[in-house]
Amino acid sequence: MLLVVEQFLNGLQFGLLLFLLAAGLTLVFGIMDLVNLAHGSLYMMGAYFAATFVAWTGNFLLGALLALGATLVLGIVLEVVALRHLYGRDHLDHVLATFGLILFFNEAVRLIWGPAGLALPLPPWLTVPVPILPGIYYPAYRLAIIVVALLVALLLYLGVMRTRIGMLIRAGASNREMIGALGINIKLLYTLVFGLGAALAGLAGLMQAPILTVQIGMGENILILAFVIIVIGGIGSIRGAFLAAVFVGMIDTLGRAFLPNLLRQILSSTAASTAAPALSSMLIYLLMAIVLVVRPEGLFPANRR
């Protein structure tokens, strides 16, 4: 029971983290029609910035806040210098150019921070176990991730659905020529959206940093998960990204936790221990394959022209 609750929460936490990443990716794709492979690099930069700033200020929250700002600025600079020139080009061009950016970021990080990973220690007040149910404790930090990510998701929803900027963003997604003709500064709007996406990726990276090691290439594996999520959820749909992210996070975590035992009941223990790791890492891809067979457009496709 304890294990089930714990793994369930771990799955939720991982899923929400994935949502932060996928939301930025799907926003940028939905509005600018830009495939940004370097989104994972922004996630990595968020983690590196956090590790640096926390060590520098000695305060976890202040460091995290500075890292968030730094990723936002980095995203805006990236958009203005490089990615802005890619709008309206072929998707293949996006893939290639942002692939080049990944090479650049990975190497820049190696140059600046060195090839070894960094650790981001938590302050003591975040390491205490918190009772969530009578007799069941859960690490405060993971709980904090869940709360922050849910809050951000709520703010994002309200921001996109209820504010004027959000209205412009949605309008830009459905018809960019028209909104430009109506006198909206499209360039500024795009830069803003990209910065927002970068900040979300950075937030995911800096929150994940204390759980995993901060290392080169950390953004790439998780980026592919984010791709799977937006394919399942439907490209351009934030609601789809949210549901798919939580779903994928759960399946992945629960699969890794319980599949080996489950298999051991059916197969011999050696066969199970060989098959389980491969099978549990395949689970989400199988899920994606099933979704594609049933709904090639994803589960919640955004309204396209």
């Binding site: 061009d93 290639l96 950016l101």
Partner: peptide, 10 residues
């Protein structure tokens, strides 16, 4: 190499 790729694309 990274920025070079970007320039080739552009």
């Amino acid at each position: 190499m990274g920025p070079l790729l970007l320039l080739i694309v552009l």
